[in-house]
Simulated assay, not measured.
Amino acid sequence: MVERFNATFVPQLAKLQDQESNNWDEFLPAVVFAYNTGQHFTTGYSPFKLQYGQDPKLPPDQPPKTVS
């Protein structure tokens, strides 16, 4: 499981860092968020949904129209 995470995680960070490779830490939150909210092929669910039992509330999502 860790090997699969690293195989996905490392290339994403490599695409975002600068040529000196010294700013990769600035992109960690965004890459982890993308990984955790993305649907995985094997399970068909995102890690967020598996852990919390609901889809994540993303910034472009509309707020609910009714209060429950």
Rank of each mutant, 00 (worst) to 15 (best):
Q39V: 10
A34D: 08
E20M: 07
R4D: 11
A14L: 14
F9T: 12
K65Y: 08
Q51R: 14
F48H: 13
L50C: 09
Q19I: 04
N22C: 02
Q51Y: 15
V2P: 00
L50H: 01
S21C: 09
F41K: 11
V2W: 10
F33H: 11
A30R: 06
T43Y: 00
F48V: 04
W24T: 04
L13A: 12
M1A: 15
F9K: 12
E20A: 14
L16H: 06
P11N: 10
P56H: 05
A34F: 07
D61M: 15
A30L: 07
F33Q: 04
A14G: 02
T37G: 01
Y45Q: 14
G38P: 05
H40Q: 13
N6Y: 07
T43N: 01
A34E: 02
T42P: 02
Q54E: 15
Q19V: 02
F9P: 03
F33D: 09
Q19Y: 04
W24L: 03
L28C: 00
T66F: 14
G38W: 05
K65D: 14
T42I: 00
G44I: 03
Q62R: 12
K15P: 05
Q51V: 10
P11L: 12
T42N: 09
A14H: 12
E20Y: 12
D25L: 09
D61S: 14
T43K: 00
V67N: 10
F27M: 00
V67Q: 11
N23F: 06
